[in-house]
């Protein structure tokens, strides 16, 4: 089974490597996975809050 791969700019990869090492991550993969998980969770949370607000507005509970 092949794992998905993502291409990024070589210079950006070098910087990611440096930041990951400074932040104490054991690998670039671990660092990037953590960042992506957080980004996905934040986006979902934001969408969720937006939908709840829209529902409250429709039901007349907020302006």
């Amino acid at each position: 089974m092949f794992e998905p791969r993502i291409r990024i700019d070589r210079e950006l990869h070098r910087q990611v490597e440096e930041v990951a090492r400074q932040a104490g991550y054991s690998s670039v993969e671990e660092f990037v996975t953590h960042l992506l998980e957080k980004a996905v969770a934040d986006a979902r949370q934001s969408q969720s809050e937006q939908d709840v607000r829209q529902r409250l507005k429709g039901l007349g509970y907020i302006e």
Partner: peptide, 27 residues
């Protein structure tokens, strides 16, 4: 009940029941 109330108010907020169930459950 929310859906019925929205219909009575003439509003279709376009939000999916399954997504709203997830949102409210998490909330």
């Amino acid at each position: 009940s929310q859906k019925t109330m929205l219909i009575r108010r003439g509003i279709d907020d376009g939000l999916n029941d399954s997504a709203m169930a997830d949102h409210f459950s998490r909330h």
